[in-house]
Computed example of a mutant assay.
Amino acid sequence: MSRTTLDTAALAHDLRLAVMRFSRRLRNQRVDSSVTLTHLAALSTLKHHGPMSPGELAAHERVQPPSMTRVVVALEGMSLVTRRPHPTDGRQVIIDLTPAADDLLAAEARAREAWLSGRLQELTAEERTVLREAAAIMDKLASG
């Protein structure tokens, strides 16, 4: 195996672990722990893609429809989503966010960004510059 291949494999290993640890720390900066990460993911998908049927939401989240049905029932019980009739298919419903869900998502984002901002302030200007460049590179990796 070539030196370049070994270096790339080592970088892939180190980067994977660092991203996992970072992601775990960021996810732990929670406002409301009664709302699970699965719930937040579903709410975020609705925020990003707009109202949709439970089946569409399940497809976006890559879970089975019965699992998403349980998530939707829980979110509805917490007054975070509403159901309304589907405009063209009377057998289906459309799931949409409530203002409380919008508020929760905003509060969750603020909490994570406040934590991250505090951690970034602990770094040198040079380290923040490197991270800014790394963020662009990671975006490039994620989109490819």
Score class of each variant (00 low, 15 high):
Met52Lys: 00
Arg21Ile: 07
Glu122Ile: 05
Ala9Ser: 12
Lys140Met: 11
Leu120Lys: 02
Ala10Ile: 10
Thr45Glu: 11
Glu126Arg: 11
Glu76His: 13
Thr38Asn: 06
Arg132Met: 10
Arg21Tyr: 08
Leu131Glu: 10
Thr124Phe: 03
Ala125Asn: 06
Asp102His: 15
Val63Gln: 10
Asp139Met: 08
Val81Asp: 06
Arg119Tyr: 05
Gly50Ser: 00
Leu11Val: 10
Gln29Phe: 00
Leu105Ile: 13
His39Met: 13
Lys47Arg: 15
Val19Leu: 15
Thr36Ala: 08
Gly118Leu: 02
Leu43Gly: 04
Ser44Gln: 13
Pro51Tyr: 01
Ala106Ser: 12
Gly118Pro: 00
His60Gln: 15
Glu113Ile: 07
Ala18Ser: 12
Leu75Phe: 03
Leu141Lys: 06
Val63Pro: 00
Leu120Val: 09
Ser33Ile: 15
Leu17Val: 09
Asp7Asn: 11
Arg110Leu: 09
Ala42Lys: 01
His60Glu: 13
Met78His: 10
Leu123Gln: 06
Met52Asp: 07
Arg128Val: 08
Leu75Cys: 05
Asp96Trp: 02
Gly118Val: 05
Arg112Val: 03
Ala134Lys: 05
Ser79His: 11
Thr36Pro: 04
Leu37Lys: 01
Ala114Cys: 03
Arg132Pro: 01
Asp103Thr: 14
Leu57Cys: 01
Thr129Glu: 14
Leu75Ala: 07
Leu123Cys: 03
Glu127Trp: 03
Gln29Ala: 15
Thr36Trp: 02
Lys47Asp: 13
Gly90Ile: 01
His49Ser: 07
Pro65Ile: 07
Thr4Pro: 00
Asp102Arg: 12
